[in-house]
């Protein structure tokens, strides 16, 4: 399978380079990666600002107001501040691993967003198995957090790393089951196919249980409250980010919002018909849905109390998993079989 089938970039290729050659493919992939990186940075910035404002509104505060109109430049000021600070790696950390994991996770997220289509024309991959690849890579992330937590040599980070693996056990299987049901309903692991199948009726209507399970599992995946046990600031200081110094912490913030973009896009595509919608162009519809879902995730963040890790495990195995099976069986019996 040529790389271009995974990342279909033919429309973006310069005409002088033949689409078949490896050089051409690599240049095309690089172009698409840069484009997506830009998109991600813009999204991170807007999400960061939006979250501050939404949280402030619910908490009866004003949020940032001083820097720029409506505090829009506040994040820029914060980025400058974080960038201008000294970078330190703790003496007893596993230095290469500690320094490599955060950029690696950012690159992973970038690659994942590259795989997900924004619209029929603005998409990176034409492969029929994109959803599977996305799933595998998404579930790889807690392991990278695990590595970072142990590499930093801090005891709080080590606890956070252990929690990361426990969480992975609790929500990953229901998540995979729901995704498998979605794929079975469509008959394809291609995201374009799943969106196409929802042109009449969204999957959230067809399998509401599946959506709830997927949303909860996604909250856990994104380390969003009430499932932020990995970062748990009132218990573990900052979890696996405890010893991370400011420039790297900026990367962690970017990572946080990039993953929020990723999660919102997956939810929008799998359950809310992706870019389907009247009048407006497809990409606008997707953005509207992504922002609505991100907004909802932010509201959940401010209103929930953090769950305890052993309760999450019990919740995952005793409630989410049986419900995921129910969802699978009901969907098979009523809709497929």
């Amino acid at each position: 399978m040529p790389i271009s089938s995974l990342l279909a970039i033919a429309p973006l290729l310069p005409a002088s380079i033949s689409p078949g050659s490896l050089t051409g493919e690599l240049i095309g992939i690089a172009e698409y990666a840069i484009a997506i990186a830009m998109v991600i940075i813009v999204f991170d910035y807007v999400f960061g600002w939006l979250e501050r404002k939404v949280v402030a509104k619910i908490q009866k505060r004003h949020g940032p107001t001083y820097a720029g109109k409506y505090g829009l430049l506040q994040n820029m000021a914060d980025i400058l501040k974080l960038m201008s600070k000294q970078h330190v790696a703790p003496a007893n950390s596993d230095r290469p691993m500690f320094l490599a994991t955060l950029p690696a996770m950012l690159a992973l997220t970038l690659f994942l967003v590259m795989l997900i289509p924004f619209s029929p024309t603005f998409s990176g991959s034409s492969s029929g198995f994109v959803l599977l690849i996305v799933l595998v890579l998404v579930s790889f992330m807690p392991l990278v957090i695990f590595m970072n937590g142990f590499a930093s040599g801090n005891k709080f980070s080590a606890i956070s790393a252990e929690r990361s693996v426990v969480m992975l056990l609790s929500y990953e299987i229901p998540l995979v089951l729901v995704v498998a049901t979605t794929a079975a309903l469509t008959g394809s692991y291609s995201l374009n196919g799943i969106v196409g199948a929802q042109s009449q009726l969204w999957y959230v209507v067809l399998m509401p249980i599946g959506f709830v399970i997927f949303f909860i599992a996604m909250l856990a995946e994104l380390e969003r409250p009430p499932f932020d046990m990995r970062e748990a600031d009132s218990e573990l200081i900052a979890g696996w980010l405890t010893d991370v110094s400011p420039p790297y912490y900026m990367l962690a913030l970017f990572l946080d919002y990039s993953r929020m973009l990723l999660g919102s896009m997956l939810i929008a595509i799998l359950f809310f018909g992706g870019w389907n919608g009247p009048v407006l162009p497809p990409i606008v519809w997707l953005l509207i849905k992504v922002f609505a879902i991100a907004f909802f995730i932010m509201i959940v963040r401010v209103t929930m109390v953090r769950m305890r890790i052993d309760r999450l495990l019990r919740f995952g195995w005793l409630i989410l998993l049986p419900l995921a099976f129910v969802n699978l069986i009901v969907t098979y019996v009523l809709l497929i079989g």
């Binding site: 908490q59 409250p225 009430p226 932020d228 009132s234 401010v302 209103t303 109390v305 953090r306």
Partner: peptide
């Protein structure tokens, strides 16, 4: 206490008001 239980300052802000 809501903060200690892991809520992101919401109840804290309300009660402080």
């Amino acid at each position: 206490t809501a903060n200690d239980l892991g809520q992101f300052f919401t109840l804290f802000m309300w009660t402080m008001k």
